[in-house]
Amino acid sequence: MKNSKTMLSILACSILLLSATFSFAENLVVKGSTTVLPIAQKVAEAYMKENPETKISISGGGSGNGMKAIIDGTTDIGNASRFIKDKEVKLAMEKGVYPVPFRVAYDCIVPVVHPSNKVGDLSLEKLKAIYTGEIKNWKEVGGPDRPVVVISRDTSSGTYEVWEKKVLKKARVFPGALLQASNGAVAQAVAKNKNAIGYIGVGYLNKDVKAVTVNGIEGSMATTLDGSFPVSRPLFMFTQGWPKGETVKFLNYVLHPAKGQKLVKEAGYVPLY
């Protein structure tokens, strides 16, 4: 009799405790850059597995939207594939908000050709000429007498954004370029076509495609980290003021070498260390 009573009280207590944890369930909102999105998604999945009481909602919308959400306070973490702009800093100051940047990963985009292609190095200028349609034959850059098939990414992808900024310097890819929807599709298309040139995130390099050095520098984790590879950029997560509570816990998880940073590598980006 007494036993069952204790059992009951234990049950009641555990129910109370359970409901208490539920009512303290944390909600994190992450918004912004579609480039950082795969990292945020992978890390959030792992994080929620370890901390089931936390609910993380993630959406894209671009770096601009991420920064806007941080300034307006509608998100806990704002992702950006670039640093904050002066205009945004000014807007934040007007609202009395201090956005704090956290560098979470690097993006490194490597030009690739078919393994049979002799061309091993291209300068930034040559790459630009190829992508704007000025160079149409491989012999113009020291290769065989074959047409260049230019493969690019859809204009709304983050990878394209880097390419446009660092290689094309804001010029437009000529309309004859083939557009593929993902890094994997570009790698596949280049591997199947001996005339092709494409560009993919360093994490997607495989033996079926040949990476081309840019200005003589090989695109790798090392050259990205020391800043010598020209087609790379850091990726950020911003918070409104110095992060507290669940947000700081999540950011620590992202920056953890064996946890978040490992997932960064899995997502095809360059980890910080």
Binding site: V149, L178, A189, K192, N193, N195, A196
Partner: peptide, 19 residues
């Protein structure tokens, strides 16, 4: 089409791309 037909077209007709 992507994996079989595209390389076949490219080699057979000697065109720039099979896609």
């Amino acid at each position: 089409g992507m994996v079989i037909v595209a390389p076949f077209l490219q080699d057979t007709f000697n065109i720039a791309t099979g896609l």
